[in-house]
C-alpha cells in the first residue's frame, strides 16, 4: 500500500497542464485560421469556412507535395530499417566488444549533428565542380555530375543524408536489442549448425518483432521533420520535385503569397492525417 500523498498531483499536474495548453491552443488556432481568408499583409479577415480545404484538392502543387511526402516517408523509413538492421547484424556477428563500443559511439554522431550541418556537409560533397564525392567521376570521365539537379537524384541525395543520420543510429539501438536477447536459442541453433542468416531471419529478428515495429513508427514520425534537410539541400527543387508538404506550406504561408490561412488548412490536414494514423497504429502495436 502506498501512503496517501499529494505527490502524484503536484509532480504530474503542472507538466500536464503546460502540455495541454501548448497542444490545444495552437491546434484550435490552426483550425480557426484555416477557416478564414487571412494573409500576412492584411490584419483583418473573414470566415470563408471550408473554401481553403476545397481549393486544396484541386491544387496540383498540393497533390504533388502529398505524393512527394509519401515517397519520402516510404523511402527513408525502409532504407533506414534496412541499413539499421544490416549494420546491427554485422556488428553482432563480426565485431568484438571493443569494436562494438567504438562503432556505436561513431554511429551516434550523425544523428546528433544539426540537420542544417549534415545537409551542408553533404551538399558541398555532392557539388558538381568541387565536391569530394563527385571527384572520382570528374577525374575519370571529365563530366560534372549534378546530382541535385535531377528530380530523382535530388530525392535520393536528400534521403541519403537522412538515412546517414538515422540508419546508423538505429544500428546502435538494434545491436543493443540483439545483445539483450537470451543467448540460449541462438546457441541451440548454432549447435544445430544453422547458418548466420538463418539464425537471424528465423530466430533473433522474429523475437525482436515488436521493438522493430516500434522503431519503424519512430522513424516514420521523425521523417516528418525533413524540412531543414530539404530546405538547405534543394529548396524543394529542381522544380517542385522534392517539395514536401511542410515545404509547400512554408512557401505558401511565408514566401510567395503570405497566404497564412491556406497554409494553415494544409497544416490542419497534415495534423489530422498524422495524429490519427500514428495514434491508431501506436495503440495497436502497444497492445
Amino acid at each position: 500500500m502506498r501512503q496517501r500523498t499529494a505527490l502524484p498531483y503536484l509532480f504530474l499536474g503542472p507538466a500536464l497542464v503546460v502540455l495541454v495548453i501548448l497542444a490545444a491552443v495552437p491546434t484550435i488556432y490552426a483550425v480557426n485560421i484555416s477557416l478564414q481568408n487571412r494573409t500576412l499583409s492584411a490584419p483583418d479577415a473573414d470566415y470563408v469556412w471550408f473554401a481553403n480545404y476545397l481549393r486544396l484538392f484541386s491544387d496540383d502543387r498540393f497533390l504533388n507535395a502529398l505524393w512527394v511526402s509519401l515517397k519520402w516517408e516510404l523511402l527513408t523509413v525502409s532504407a533506414t530499417m534496412v541499413v539499421g538492421i544490416g549494420l546491427a547484424l554485422a556488428m553482432f556477428e563480426a565485431a568484438n566488444a571493443r569494436w562494438r563500443a567504438i562503432l556505436c559511439l561513431l554511429f551516434i554522431i550523425p544523428v546528433l549533428l544539426p540537420r542544417v550541418c549534415a545537409a551542408f556537409v553533404w551538399k558541398f560533397s555532392f557539388h558538381p565542380l568541387y565536391g569530394a564525392t563527385t571527384w572520382p567521376v570528374r577525374a575519370l570521365t571529365g563530366e560534372t555530375p549534378d546530382l541535385l539537379a535531377t528530380p530523382w537524384g535530388a530525392m535520393l541525395a536528400v534521403a541519403f543524408v537522412d538515412v546517414w543520420q538515422w540508419g546508423l543510429f538505429f544500428a546502435v539501438i538494434i545491436l543493443k536489442l540483439l545483445e539483450s536477447l537470451p543467448p540460449q536459442p541462438i546457441e541451440a541453433a548454432r549447435i544445430d549448425r544453422a547458418k548466420g542468416w538463418e539464425i537471424h531471419s528465423f530466430i533473433t529478428l522474429p523475437m525482436l518483432k515488436l521493438p522493430l515495429i516500434s522503431l519503424v513508427l519512430v522513424k516514420a514520425i521523425e521523417s516528418l521533420r525533413s524540412f531543414d534537410l530539404v530546405y538547405v539541400m534543394t529548396r524543394g527543387g529542381p522544380g517542385i520535385s522534392t517539395e514536401t508538404l511542410d515545404m509547400y506550406a512554408y512557401s505558401q504561408g511565408f514566401i510567395e503569397a503570405g497566404n497564412i490561412s491556406y497554409a494553415s488548412s494544409m497544416a490542419v490536414i497534415m495534423m489530422v492525417l498524422t495524429v490519427v494514423m500514428f495514434t491508431t497504429i501506436w495503440k495497436r502495436v502497444q497492445k
Binding site: V25, P26, T27, A249, G253, W282
Partner: peptide, 16 residues
C-alpha cells in the same frame, strides 16, 4: 503524441 504533430502545423498558429 505531441511528437506526432508536424512542426509546420505548430509553427503557423504559433506565429499568429
Amino acid at each position: 503524441s505531441l511528437r506526432f504533430l508536424p512542426p509546420v502545423a505548430v509553427a503557423i498558429p504559433m506565429m499568429v
